[in-house]
Design a binder for these strands. Structure first.
Lengths: 339, 339
DNA sequence: TTGAAAGCGCTAACAG
DNA sequence: CTGTTAGCGCTTTCAA
């Protein structure tokens, strides 16, 4: 029923190969012929079938993106970075949320491979042997994004989470805080563990040990975190933290509010540092000091790297670590000598 | 190089038709044969080529989603609703951001049709004749989601934006406010216009006219809105609004902060109502009263509707209007008799 | 229950 | 510069 390349060829009085050439912008077509074919394409409303093309050419111009949850601000922003670069290179994007569920991840990877994606971007999960095996039999390049792979077996684009946490905690410790709390989503997640490692390291380097009660593990939602922090702040003053490092901005905001609810002031009584520097960091009062994770760039750089692998271009590094920094705002006290 | 259905057939000593039947779960295969084939599939690590299948069967199990911006909280949440239902019906999703740019939208629609998507979900834009023409030649079902189409020509899933705005503004007016401001993103966007219509209607119904200076059009970002509101609040008291209806939660939060910056109190001096009831509404103090737009459900229902069209199942209504309501929180004063 | 064979719509040598 | 001819890997009649 739909118009095919064959219909166009017949009507234009040329072979389908010529039509194919016109469609694909081959220079080897006489201008007059091209014009004629183009006219017929217009008349017939011909629209090339990308599936057939994909089968014949073995190029689908599609890449697969697997992420924990597209509705999370963090991954949505990352996805946008991926999309923009993909677009620039004429790739379309197949997106699926995995809920960081291993089985779902594996099944999604399989499904994308069946669809003959030309590359896979895998975000924010944890790799085990099954993942590795699948990726290795894939025959298409894979880039991990914002994903912890201790083995560094696959190409990846990320920030140094451990170091970022280390920097944030060091900043707080160096201001003289005796008790810096760490508010985090469950520590079984690899990204949470990386931050925890940085927290521990910053303490250790100063001859301090982790005080169990200052590490607050909670579900990564505002309401839950608020309650968890309320409990911590109800402690007597000599056990209560005077600074809080939170693993996300959402957790940090919960911390800020818990402090205020306890009748204390941010930043005068308690300083708070968040993570990710999402839009919301600037939309609360006091505005949040936050570790900047360049989400859009992570996505963009990863996608660019993937195109290089697909085109077999040389790449400088398979493990790209993007810089992080701390954006200082009002949830911490002004730094001496800061602009 | 990769294993094909033919390789499996040969090795299993059956025809490729039989292998195809096994893959597709056809009941017309002797159990012993099925088992043998399955074993070979396993041994060879055979993975069906979905592109070839799509070409042969004319079914790609792919649907196309076009939205203004995947990094926006609103659309990301909507996308998640779409995804979950799509998944349930074994569809994969091709997502693209259009930036609400007409040309981009048209080109994306074309590209998705070339890819033989089995249906299209079009979110949050404005339809003109070019869109309509494309959709009509598409031969695949289209569902508009959270999209204003005055002509109601295509199936759609949405809330009654005009009515929702009307309800919010009526609520404020009925509390005795003389001056209710409307803080909105640019009014050329159809969704913004719909809310504006509700604002006007609520006023008109009470014999009031729109006061130009109370309609504040701004870019839909916190910083810009904050400035715009500051200007408005700098007005002498008799021109200053005592209530603000904002077109999004982000704008509403800017309004709250502008009021506070002006040395006034929310809700005592100025009441503020937001829109969408995104997560952030509960993450600011005072917590935001907001019009609930069920984003996840909009996506889920739309996707479900699309599957019905694809399967040619009967549908009850082509214009699904989901209910909205107002979630009352602390940015408005307590209602008399409210729980 | 199984197999043979004809496409699906296009690309990509190859020949001219 | 253009046409011919094989496929790409699978589904789907139609027979057997």
């Amino acid at each position: 029923m739909p118009v095919t390349i064959y219909d166009v060829a017949k009507r234009a009085g040329v072979s389908m190969a010529t039509v194919s050439r016109v469609i694909n912008g081959s220079p080897n077509v006489r201008p007059a012929t091209r014009k004629k074919v183009l006219k017929v394409i217009e008349e017939l409303g011909y629209r090339p079938n990308a599936v057939a093309r994909g089968l014949a050419s073995r190029r689908t111009t599609t890449i697969g993106v697997i992420l924990p949850d597209i509705s999370s601000v963090f991954f949505a922003e990352l996805a946008r970075g991926i999309e923009d670069i993909a677009n620039m290179y004429d790739y379309d994007i197949l997106i699926s949320s995995s809920d960081a569920n291993r089985e779902k991840e594996l099944s999604l990877i399989g499904s994308m491979l069946e669809r003959q994606v030309e590359g896979i971007l895998f975000l924010g999960g944890h790799l085990d042997d099954a993942h590795r095996r699948l990726f290795k039999t894939a025959n298409v390049p894979v880039v991990l994004v914002a994903t912890e792979d201790p083995e560094r077996e696959f190409a990846s684009v990320r920030i140094d989470l451990r170091r970022a946490a280390y920097d944030a905690v060091s900043f707080l410790l160096d201001r003289g805080h005796e008790r810096v709390a760490f508010l985090t989503d469950p520590l079984h997640a690899p990204m949470a563990r990386a931050r925890y490692a940085g927290y521990v390291e910053a303490l250790a380097e100063r001859g301090r040990r982790v005080e169990e009660h200052l590490v607050v593990e909670t579900h990564p939602y505002y309401e839950r975190a608020l309650k968890a922090m309320a409990t911590l702040l109800a402690l007597p003053e000599e056990k209560r933290p005077t600074a809080i490092f939170a693993a996300s901005d959402e957790l940090a905001i919960a911390a800020v509010h818990a402090v205020q609810d306890a009748g204390l002031s941010v930043p005068d009584d308690v300083e708070v540092v968040g993570f990710d520097n999402t839009r919301i960091a600037q939309m609360v009062r006091p505005m949040l000091t936050s570790v900047v994770q360049p989400m859009y760039d992570l996505g963009a750089v990863a996608m660019r790297l993937l195109t290089k692998f697909i085109r077999q271009e040389p790449v400088e590094s398979r493990d790209v670590v993007l810089p992080h920094r701390i954006e200082f705002r009002a949830s911490t006290r002004p730094r001496v000598g800061a602009p």
